[in-house]
Design a protein around this nucleic acid. Sequence first.
DNA 1: CCCTTTCTTCACCACCCGATGAAGAACACG
DNA 2: CGTGTTCTTCATCGGGTGGTGAAGAAAGGG
Lengths: 202, 202
Amino acid sequence: MAEDGTHGRPGRWRSGAESKQRILRTARELFDEHGYGATTVRAIATAAGVDPAMVFYFFGTKQDLFAAVAGMSGTVPPAIDSIFAGGLDTIGERIVRTLVENLDKSDRTPLVMLTRSAPTNPQSEALLREFIDREITDRIAAMLGTPDAALRAAMVNVQILGLTVARYIMRIEPIASSSVDELVDRFGPLVQHCLTGRTGQS
Amino acid sequence: MAEDGTHGRPGRWRSGAESKQRILRTARELFDEHGYGATTVRAIATAAGVDPAMVFYFFGTKQDLFAAVAGMSGTVPPAIDSIFAGGLDTIGERIVRTLVENLDKSDRTPLVMLTRSAPTNPQSEALLREFIDREITDRIAAMLGTPDAALRAAMVNVQILGLTVARYIMRIEPIASSSVDELVDRFGPLVQHCLTGRTGQS
DNA sequence: CCCTTTCTTCACCACCCGATGAAGAACACG
DNA sequence: CGTGTTCTTCATCGGGTGGTGAAGAAAGGG
């Protein structure tokens, strides 16, 4: 029932859901590459080897398709949970390691895609802000409990955003080609300092 | 001859260059807000109170207009020079202060605009990368002279990108509404640590 | 077997896109 | 005043856009 994994049963039934998922995958790629406004439904359909009308058949409208593409979460939370499982003194490392390891697995991950399209698409911006608030800011703030927890959490957000943009979007060297361990070595203490270091207020 | 500064003589001559600059200003705003692909020449013309054909009269094509909008630099360098004027032990503060002060003056600054449109526009990405390499990475690396200078400079880039995205693009709280001094207090030491702190390699 | 449901295609709509070319106003200069 | 240059508008072109509706293939169920 509902959706299965990648391509389902060995004996394909009529088809249908396969086309739907192919459209979804292609749409994700193109929206990610060119943004919402510059991506055409026909380009998605062509790239997916499908008639343009099918896009409107499965997903009613272009915005609905975008929402279907961008509106999937729930895949990251298990990894995020492990961040907050350990102690507070090594959480910086865990944040960086979890972030980079998960994003390295696929550069089409929702976080990268949203970060990419947020600047030019209000819907993406809202989703990304919501995700950041819910999964990062709130949980960090709750874990710290200090008065400046919100500010410290925001500093971590800056690290996450900067790292994401530099490594996965702009691919700035040598950040883009560094190993996971290298990045953890470099940015782990930095993030740790954001959370538990003494404030800049001297 | 050629172009003058902002609006030239007190008694406006026929007009002309004024329309040209009005188009430029409007185009910068719209390209910044919606990106290249999602911005139409007609929308620019309408917002500028000008016939669409005038856009093509002054700038031959849409891409040329974008190039004219995005291809301006030289305004920031004097401020950047002051960063590298002082000593190495307080350069972190100066980087953050200069960045935030300059970007606070106008959120339509080239750096913010390029950062905004880089994810969806190859031309913007190239310009932004070139700017970062030339004005930040190279100068920091030259100033440090250590073997890991490139990596340290890249870490500063991560800070700059993260700060820019968080404060000026996504407007994440409380980063967006913090004062300049607050941000300098918080991120100055962080940037300083990137450059002169001990490496994470223990 | 027919008939229904699901998927796919095709033809088509109104609209907007970037871009062109020529005609019309506003001015400068002689 | 007349002429030429500069700026502005208008009408238009070919093409692509998001979106719709009906007709045509598979597949399933009775």
